[in-house]
Design a protein around this nucleic acid. Structure first.
Lengths: 339, 339
DNA sequence: GATGCACATGTAATGGATTACATGCCGTTT
DNA sequence: AAACGGCATGTAATCCATTACATGTGCATC
């Protein structure tokens, strides 16, 4: 394996000079730089990262805590993170948390130290994981998508509350008054904020809150639980004419449920989803939903984390990316049969 | 940061002894081992991986070449790889190849050297990437799912040819005679082998090959291209009564196409998929398909790679995991209207 | 009792890059 | 002309764990 010493000999300079050319490049004569660069090329020299990392006291490893990345939402985020981290010269160590409830400070700290990661990105912390705050004082950390509201830890997300509100407002504009929500029993801030946005929209429109219209699906947004929640809602004496679901899969479940009960979406029931994952346009009716820029969230998380690792002055602590309401085929004006 | 010297002092032994306890553990008295272990615990010592890797001349990094891991197939494989590699103490550097055609030996070698990976797992090489053979002589490599048939490079996969044959045989048993296949223009061996299996089944049943029943979807198995391919097939003067699709998404596309043309699956048309990804049971009719153990493929890839990295004697070069034909709702006996 | 060997442990070299500090040269100032 | 300063470059210390080799102890053998 060719090392820096070989390059130095080949170029007729010292190792320090080679290193300087490879790193800072300042204070080295242009012609010397050129000599070094040629030698590097001739010998196909690649610096040994272990040695560099040892000396610089960094690992160039980023720890990513992700629950179940078969979920297209997370896999898109992951794509974004990986693409950027590769460009910045970081390896990503993906730790599959499966059930995010299993996370605690001890586990994370030990993971961190064992792998000597330079920083960490979480994809799904619970809104009450307060221990993150203390953790973040010691190590660079960025929370992506989900975050702890009360802790001043860097995070990047969309404005879930506003997006939910806009989505429900769309239903209201279409004449719906009995609007249900299928949220989840998980402890994600996004679920909470989407519920808040739903309530905001109702309140602003002067529609009084009806708790029987708030249904809870399982923590993992499973299709089956979406189906069940929708079934419960549609079995109500006064069934809703529209259902706002906090995830696309739940919405698909809701549509399946409606079909089973003889209701046609969107004519008999409007349904909206959240996230805009791939399969929202795989079956008719195509799902009306809120597009969340997953890939971009991933990209920006890594960029933000990098800013914090390198202690860039003025690195942001709160970033919100724009969402987009995508109107497709699962919402229609309320048929005025109940009026 | 506490280092080995601190532990040695704390335990009242030399650094060599500490290192021995941490690594080999042989030739050290049990009571000395205990002393060291206690000191490690007291000081929360974690060895510096850069230093260790530098000395041992390894990186504990595995390079994974994956195209588009939003595809649930790949994300499941990835899950498997990541879980195992974490346990073995490896970081995974996931390189998103997007379009696997862009891969060549130069890129891979440079990726490898730059990251000083200890080994590599490919998830989607083309069947004609012959350069892999030379590459594999220099570096530990395992091909997962897709591989180069002619090269004696370690690979792990399912028996795609047999699985396809069995799947088509199921259709034949149900009375179908005009059976079409939707394969892909990509250069994956799996596509080729699934086509071969399809032909095997026909031949064995004495059904003569009809090239007009072989349709090609796009390289990325997109839903839209599955739709289009099925549409072409169903527009044939003598339309097929069953379509074997080489991926689930293509099958879903085919079902969508059939619906659009007024055909009911499975009564008017049988459809089968391949892979058994999540959303095969998200909509009725649930898809009849071939279950491929993606997660297990990932797991075993990493284990196999580890065997090769550690030069375990007798490490396998060819592994085939069992598949399973899953009969659900998209296949039915041929209605004998054409007899 | 001297020699040799096995065994537990210690000492110091090693891996490859970075970087603080040292050196030497040249031009400027007084 | 002496002194100084800036600049390009070199020398050597450093990061921390591993491990070849050295040391020392105790036991068995002749």
């Amino acid at each position: 394996m060719v090392k820096i010493e070989d390059v130095a000999r080949e170029a007729g300079v010292s190792v320090a000079t080679v290193s300087r050319v490879l790193n800072e490049s300042c204070g080295v004569l242009p012609e010397t730089q050129e000599k070094v660069r040629l030698a590097v090329e001739r010998l196909h020299y690649e610096p040994n990262l272990s040695a560099r990392n040892l000396r610089k006291n960094e690992s160039r490893i980023i720890l990513i805590l992700a629950p179940n990345f078969s979920n297209p939402y997370y896999s898109n985020v992951l794509s974004g993170i990986c693409d950027v981290s590769r460009n910045l010269g970081y390896s990503t160590l993906i730790y599959n948390t499966y059930d995010s409830n299993a996370l605690d400070e001890k586990l994370v700290t030990s993971l961190f130290q064992k792998n000597r990661a330079d920083g960490m990105i979480t994809l799904a912390v619970n809104r009450d994981d307060y221990w993150l705050a203390q953790y973040a004082e010691k190590y660079p950390l960025v929370q992506c998508s989900e975050y702890v509201e009360e802790a001043a830890v860097p995070h990047i997300s969309v404005d879930n509350r506003l997006a939910a509100k806009e989505s429900v407002q769309h239903l209201i504009v279409q004449g719906h008054r009995r609007i249900a929500i299928v949220t989840s029993t998980n402890r994600y801030l996004s679920s909470t904020n989407r519920l808040r946005g739903y309530l905001d929209a109702l309140e602003e429109a002067g529609i009084s809150r009806d708790d029987s219209l708030i249904a809870y699906a399982s923590a993992d947004y499973s299709f089956a639980s979406g189906k069940q929640a929708a079934k419960d809602l549609l079995s109500l004496p006064e069934a809703p004419s529209a259902i706002f679901c906090v995830s696309d899969i739940l919405a698909l479940g809701a549509i399946a449920s409606a079909g089973k009960m003889g209701l046609q979406v969107p004519w008999d029931l409007s349904v909206t989803g959240f996230d805009d994952v791939d399969y929202t346009t795989m079956f008719h009716p195509y799902l009306t939903t809120v597009a969340v820029p997953c890939y971009e969230l991933g990209r920006r998380s890594m960029l933000l984390l990098y800013d914090h690792i390198t202690q860039k002055p003025g690195a942001e602590r709160e970033v919100y990316l724009p969402h987009q309401i995508i109107l497709r085929e699962t919402t229609a004006p309320q048929a005025r049969t109940d009026a």
